[in-house]
Simulated scan of single mutants.
Amino acid sequence: MSKPHVSSAVMTHPVRLGQAKDLAARLRLDRLAVDPDPDGPPSALRTAVVAWAAADPEADHHLVVQDDVDAPDELLEIVAEAAARFPDEALVYYTNWHARNGAAARLAALAGASWVRAVPDEFTPSLAVCLPTATAAAFRAFARGSDERHDDELFSVFFRGCGRMGLLAVPNIVEHIGTSSINGHAAQGIRLAVCPTPAADAAPLLAKGRVLEEPGWIPYMRYGEGYIRLVGQEHGPDGGRGHHRWREALPATGLSVETVRAALDAHLPERLAAEVARTFGDSFAEELWTHCLLLGRQAAHAARRLGPPPADVPAAALDRMRHSAVATAGPAGLPPERRPEAGPAEVRAMTDLAWSAVRAGERLP
């Protein structure tokens, strides 16, 4: 398997030019792609078109990262190895902890998978994406003249048209930094990676780990409440963008509210739930536990379908990846305005509560 030539660019705006230069220098990225109309209406897509046009004509793949990220010094090597393994795929190295795709990645982590296929009814996170150069050129042509200003939204439209969504790296080696947003996302509050993983663990997982192509229905949380993304909901009249509360969606999953309630009555650790509830309320504590119960059930189901991990995938790295994914479930499930209240003690309590639910979910029929 020969190593492909990966060219690279950093998307930036003049107000972050110094930050972008430092990032490019540290990660040895090829060039900067600066917003061509910095005084115009905010548009990530406008800068993305410049970034994807910056591909080296001799390159096999092109990597574009945004300027408000942190990443390991080994980023290019890890990306090149994955591009060699998946030469025709769009590879996504950061996934938001509070999105449906984040929930898919969290489920995949618990199932022991290192990659998961993105869902078609949500934006494709675009903080760090590697495309084959032919795909990059096709996306650039597709984007030219679009009225959309969000590159992540247009990515999903483009991939849906191609018939295949991107692959999400489950261990996230790229992290979002800061809460400001040139493109208008500041209201989403603290936005972090779903499964932050050090390069030493991520490299073998991404090089050898399994791919979860279809996770089935996906439990996720938003603004303190639990939801379920149903299989095939992208074919609905709203393109699948609507949200289904878990109680209403359960009949389509084969589970019942009675089953969930019985598990909660039997296994909810009252002391942990009370500890979480002291800061965030009883309703949130119960919603988080129920969400993670359903997450554990689906992850166990996916793990059985995947089978045992390859022998050359480090078991300890897999275990640390799982713990990283569960540790973000609580903070990500909070309303944006409450996330700053999640200090180390609160995160520990939410994580312990989440694990108790995951383990109970693994025992659900």
Rank of each mutant, 00 (worst) to 15 (best):
M221R: 00
M221T: 02
R222A: 05
Y223T: 14
Y223M: 11
Y223C: 11
E225Y: 14
E225C: 13
E225M: 12
E225Q: 15
G226T: 12
R229P: 04
L230V: 08
L230G: 05
L230R: 07
L230C: 04
V231D: 01
Q233I: 04
Q233M: 01
E234T: 04
H235W: 11
H235T: 13
H235L: 13
P237T: 07
P237E: 13
P237F: 03
R241C: 11
R241V: 07
G242M: 09
G242R: 12
H243L: 15
H243D: 13
H243M: 15
H244Y: 06
H244W: 12
H244G: 10
R247P: 02
E248A: 09
L250P: 05
L250G: 00
P251N: 10
P251E: 02
P251F: 02
A252K: 09
T253M: 11
L255Y: 01
S256A: 13
V257K: 14
V257T: 15
V257F: 15
E258S: 11
E258Y: 05
V260F: 04
V260G: 02
R261W: 07
A262R: 13
L264A: 15
L264M: 12
D265P: 03
A266E: 14
A266K: 09
H267E: 00
L268A: 03
L268I: 10
P269I: 00
E270H: 06
E270C: 04
E270N: 03
R271Y: 07
L272V: 02
L272W: 00
L272Y: 02
A273E: 04
A274T: 05
E275T: 13
V276I: 11
V276K: 03
A277C: 03
A277V: 01
R278S: 08
T279D: 14
G281H: 12
G281C: 06
D282T: 09
S283R: 14
A285K: 01
A285M: 04
E286W: 01
E287D: 05
L288K: 00
H291D: 12
C292V: 01
C292F: 02
L293M: 04
L294I: 12
R297W: 11
A299Q: 01
H301C: 14
A302C: 09
A303T: 10
R304I: 13
R305H: 11
P308Y: 09
P309V: 05
P309F: 05
P310Y: 08
P310W: 03
A311D: 15
A311P: 06
V313F: 04
V313M: 03
V313R: 04
P314H: 09
A316D: 13
A316G: 07
A316Q: 13
A317E: 01
L318M: 13
L318Q: 11
L318G: 06
L318T: 06
D319K: 14
R320F: 12
M321L: 15
R322I: 02
R322L: 10
S324A: 15
S324P: 07
